[in-house]
Design a protein around this nucleic acid. Structure first.
Lengths: 106, 106
DNA sequence: CGTATTGCTACGATAAATGTAGCAATGGAG
DNA sequence: CTCCATTGCTACATTTATCGTAGCAATACG
């Protein structure tokens, strides 16, 4: 087998590419799940924890902070986490996963 | 309120909803990245490792096995990992992330 | 006052990922 | 044949991430 694309700079491995940062952020545990659970309406931190199979608050808090810094999630005035406009937009991009998962269902 | 203690089984699939299993699988480290790097053409395990910023082969092998069992990735005859038809389909569903990430660009 | 929320954190235990090294199998060149 | 490079893949000790439980300060209501 030839060297193919393995020579040095392979596609997408250049540092600073936004999609890589995004894939890294979304690839951390509970990130996708949090966005998914907030897709309809805001949830309090504890309601979100319940929705996420009682995931430990440590990591949930970490993910929420990261997602807030990324501009996808915000903490509302009277409490409760919700998606920002950007977050809703992001959520919409991988919403087809739902239909895909239903067909996948191995 | 359900309190079922998780016991290292399949994470995120306790609800039985396929989308949860899918979010869990894709939420593991390097899963999204692997699919992303394979989006165009197959790569050998080592080329994939190079593309994934020299990620450790241990976890890459683990993810590849999981993605193969899920039916998204396959190992070609003459070597090299590539997406299955299902994998290409999945990859297409979150390909808009690229454009989104470019606009996001915090 | 007591009680019940909220968001959030400490911390030891456990699971996962990293980094380095190396294996057996395959194939091509000499 | 031997030599060597490459393939997919694994061992293992170290580091990092996550879990699970408990609890904090702030707020609100009676």
């Amino acid at each position: 087998m030839a060297k193919q694309a393995a020579s040095g700079k392979v596609r997408g491995s250049r540092t600073g590419r936004p999609v890589m940062a995004l894939l890294d952020l979304l690839g951390r545990r509970w990130s996708l799940r949090i966005l998914w659970e907030l897709r309809d309406a805001p949830l309090t931190s504890r309601a979100l924890r319940t929705a996420c199979d009682e995931a430990s608050p440590t990591v949930l808090q970490a993910r929420l902070t990261e997602l807030r810094e990324a501009g996808f999630v915000e903490l509302g005035e009277g409490g409760g986490y919700g998606l920002t406009a950007l977050g809703r937009e992001l959520c919409a991009t991988f919403m087809p996963l739902h239909r895909f998962a239903e067909r996948w269902k191995k």
